[in-house]
């Protein structure tokens, strides 16, 4: 461990203050007794209690979780398939174009993605609701999954799949019995990433949602326009908690897998 110089300590403090003070204030004021958001009047958890009574918020929360689970699962399946083809498919026609196109939504402004999806849904006459939000979220989170999974597949020893084929597996059996179990950590962390992204999204969801279904971020956004209530602070705190847990789990899963893989590689190199 090296000791930090005072300069490093200051820059570290400033940086993290910049990042986390807003959230910290939000969390602190979610435990505020007063109804006024900016005046501290003692500690209380009553806004959490009240939140539990608010039918509209609970409904939105349920829709959000449903959408997140469905879209991240769908995105994981599609993203893994896409990553597999990109890494393993060899040099087929237009491979570079396709792999570029998979990653394009990463840098596409969300407003544009949202608008184009809205136009599509109207064009094919799909009523906006849970289904459309799921489809929209799958669209943009799929590319994140495929980035995570393909980076694992690149380091995957090809001869393992060949060994499976050699021992009598059809290509799909080889994928199911050998490839998938080995890349599972990357697939899981891809799923968690997609789940968190879906939970967070406001812009795309506001294009794809309709009167029959609203997600939590949309609900909060529209509620805040009428004035910030401590209830919203409580709700946001809960969301921060869920997202934090999700992100930490995802990074732990992939880090553990990486450490394990490294150990195995070292063990393999240490031939005795």
């Amino acid at each position: 461990m090296t000791r930090l110089s005072w300069f490093n300590v200051v820059s570290l403090t400033l940086g993290f203050a910049f990042l986390y003070i807003p959230m910290l204030i939000l969390i602190i004021f979610s435990f505020n007794e007063s109804k006024l958001v900016t005046v501290w009047a003692g500690f209380s958890t009553k806004w959490y209690g009240e939140l539990m009574q608010n039918e509209a918020f609970l409904n939105a929360a349920w829709v959000t979780v449903k959408v997140a689970v469905m879209s991240s699962t769908l995105a994981t399946v599609l993203g893994t398939m896409a990553a597999y083809v990109m890494v393993r498919g060899g040099r087929f026609m237009g491979r570079t174009l396709f792999s570029g196109m998979i990653y394009a939504p990463l840098v596409m402004p969300e407003v544009i993605t949202g608008l184009s999806l809205l136009l599509l849904f109207i064009g094919i006459g799909l009523d906006r609701g849970v289904l459309t939000i799921v489809l929209a979220h799958t669209t943009f989170s799929m590319c994140y999954v495929s980035v995570v999974v393909s980076s694992r597949l690149v380091t995957f020893d090809r001869s393992l799949e060949e060994a499976a084929l050699d021992l009598g597996c059809s290509p799909s059996e080889a994928f199911r019995l050998v490839t998938l179990p080995i890349i599972a950590p990357a697939v899981i962390s891809g799923w968690l990433l997609a789940f968190t992204l879906s939970l967070d999204d406001l812009v795309i969801a506001s294009f794809a949602s309709g009167p029959s279904a609203t997600t939590l971020p949309i609900k909060i956004f529209s509620a805040v326009r009428l004035g910030v209530s401590p209830e919203i602070n409580a709700l946001s705190t809960l969301m921060i908690a869920v997202v934090t847990v999700g992100v930490i789990t995802a990074s732990l899963v992939s880090k553990r897998a990486m450490v394990r893989q490294k150990q195995e590689e070292q063990a393999a190199a240490r031939v005795t």
Binding site: S159, E162, D166, S170, V178, I182
Partner: peptide
């Protein structure tokens, strides 16, 4: 390859890391 009465021992051995020795041989 999966229909040939030919088996191969790979240079890297290509043992399945998620299976134990017994299951590797039984694969």
């Amino acid at each position: 390859p999966n229909k040939r009465a030919v088996n191969m021992m790979f240079q890297s051995y290509a043992l399945f890391p998620h299976l134990n020795i017994w299951d590797n041989i039984a694969f």
